[in-house]
């Protein structure tokens, strides 16, 4: 599905050339759940932006679903971002003036769907992330986890074949992070291809495959023997909290 060959991304910072990516070859198949790991500055976000058609490589070839991305016009790239891929960001990137419903609806507007379709698909996407009751709320009226779920609903709404997530749990506490990971795992079970960037091993172990990046090069590509189950972990943490609380606190009579 995704095939990268000899991808380089070079930034010119005044006199100095910065090689964000330095010859990356990578294949990702349909229905995979891949994590890209690496320290800051390793090029993992750059890699994801290129795969997600947000950025263009300086060199190398990228084939997405059989079509050569470097030959596509910016209009065609926009269409790919609209229909083929969905993005989830660390900072949620919702439009603050708009309600959850409107935020989720936005990709459908750019896709040219009519009112009726938009209503139906938006409601469905919000239902998938269990936020139907928050449709009328604006981002600043919601918690971080809720905002990220709105962002996931927005990424899902056009029924994309790949979901890209850039540190989706980075701005969330670990429990909410687990809930979000559980959601990704559920989407994966339902057939989605997911490419996620993270620097936390805990999070990466929820995927099926981990790609290590260092200084713009792939230094490891491993299968996860047994992925963690975020749902179970989340429930355990939730139960633990519950038990601990009742043990630790005695009511004042």
């Amino acid at each position: 599905m995704i095939s990268l060959k000899g991808i380089r991304k070079i930034y010119q910072m005044g006199e100095i050339e910065v090689k964000a990516l330095d010859g990356v070859d990578l294949e990702i198949e349909e229905h995979e759940f891949v994590c890209i790991m690496g320290a800051s500055g390793s090029g993992k976000s750059t890699l994801m932006n290129i795969i997600g058609c947000l950025d263009r490589p300086s060199e190398g070839s990228y084939t997405l679903d059989g079509s050569d991305v470097s030959s596509l016009t910016s209009r065609e790239l926009a269409d790919i971002r609209n229909r083929k891929v969905g993005f989830v960001f660390q900072t949620f990137n919702l439009l603050p003036r708009m309600t959850a419903h409107r935020n989720v609806e936005l990709p459908l507007i750019y896709a040219g769907n009519n009112d009726k379709e938009r209503k139906k698909k938006t409601a469905l996407a919000l239902e998938k992330v269990e936020l139907s009751d928050r449709a009328k709320h604006k981002p600043n009226e919601m918690s971080g986890g809720q905002r990220q779920r709105v962002a996931i609903a927005r990424a899902l709404v056009n029924d994309p074949s790949i979901i890209f997530a850039d540190e989706p749990t980075g701005n969330l506490d670990s429990r909410t992070g687990l809930a979000i990971m559980a959601l990704f795992q559920k989407l994966h079970r339902e057939g989605a291809t997911i490419v996620m960037v993270t620097h936390e091993m805990d999070i990466a172990l929820h995927a099926q495959r981990i790609i290590h990046l260092k200084d713009g090069k792939i230094i490891g590509d491993e299968r996860v023997k047994k992925s963690r189950d975020a749902e179970a972990e989340f429930l355990a943490v939730a139960d633990l909290d519950h038990d601990n609380l009742s043990d630790a606190i005695s009511k004042h009579e």
């Binding site: 209009r75 926009a78 609209n82 990137n93 936005l106 990709p107 750019y110």
Partner: peptide, 16 residues
């Protein structure tokens, strides 16, 4: 600018 970026990331064309 950021809003424009977000819109482009979810499929807005230059024309949009």
């Amino acid at each position: 600018t950021r809003e424009i970026g977000i819109r482009m990331a979810i499929g807005a064309t230059s024309r949009d």
